[in-house]
Design a protein around this nucleic acid. Structure first.
Length: 258
DNA sequence: ATGTCGGAATTATTCCGA
């Protein structure tokens, strides 16, 4: 079973790119972030034509997450309780016996911005919600764009960026609370010493300069951990293809046994 | 040039957020 997460930076602008990626990588279950459209505009037909069902939790212009799956999707949660005003950022569904949650965490902008403490509060709410609703012994996946660089190895320049947005102790403490709750970072468990990024700024040729961050992750509970066969960041899909503009994020792919 | 995108508001140009 192949699971993936991808921040699209706009589904309308990325639909052809996404469809060609699906045809190439053939994922079974996908969490999508920043589709930036209302649910009535979500292109269910385009995915159905490739054999995928879809569930969306969207809004106009910003945020928006969705789940694509070959197997039936039973939505169990739309939006993070108590944080609805911060936008459509969480969607949970049961698929193939797995509780699958995809999130688009708030960016926070910078440590002095009013969004920064709101970002920390959003993560506190996320951890509390998962602790309330998820039993660690059950199969669960939490994936998405966390907008947190988990550790120094996940940044192109920790030395210069330490203490700035994505790189603060406060954000990393929130990330750690999720890990301590029984979820494992599947990429880091599989590749303890590998420096790999999932996001590169569009500006300044960051991709070609290798100036990226690993902020898109797939976390899994113990029953998922046991099934992991491989985890890779699909950086080829951060490149322009057939004249189509990529997202500023690359997909993350996880292959599970069974 | 903080250098590029996507989308909204408004009509090809500017704003905002990332």
């Amino acid at each position: 079973m192949r699971v993936a997460t991808w921040n699209l930076n706009g589904l309308r602008a990325r639909l052809d790119f996404l469809l060609s990626w699906i045809e190439s990588r053939k994922p079974d279950l996908v969490g999508l972030q920043e589709h930036t459209m209302t649910d009535d505009l979500f292109p269910h037909d385009a995915f159905a034509a490739l054999g995928y069902r879809a569930a969306s939790h969207g809004q106009k212009a910003w945020n928006g997450i969705a789940i694509l799956s070959r197997a039936p999707i039973e939505v169990t949660q739309r939006g993070l309780p108590g944080q609805e005003e911060f936008g459509a950022r969480l969607l949970t569904a049961t698929v193939s016996g797995i509780s699958f949650t995809t999130v688009y965490a708030p960016n926070g902008k910078n440590v002095g911005h009013e969004d920064f403490p709101r970002k920390l509060a959003w993560f506190d709410a996320l951890a509390a919600h998962l602790e309330r609703t998820h039993e660690p012994s059950r199969p669960a996946i939490l994936c998405g764009d966390f907008n947190i660089c988990p550790g120094p190895l996940d940044s192109w320049n920790e030395e210069a960026l330490s203490g700035t947005i994505f790189h603060t102790d406060e954000e990393r403490e929130r990330y750690r609370r999720l890990i301590d709750g029984g979820l494992r970072d599947l990429f880091r468990e599989r590749h303890p010493d590998k420096r790999a990024f999932s996001w590169w700024d569009y500006r300044g040729g960051a991709f070609h300069r290798k100036q990226g961050l690993r902020i898109d992750v797939v976390l899994g509970s113990a029953p998922i951990m046991k099934r992991v066969r491989d985890v890779e960041i699909d950086r080829d899909y951060r490149k322009k293809r057939d004249g189509l503009t990529p997202s500023d994020h690359a997909p993350v792919l996880v292959d599970l046994d069974g």
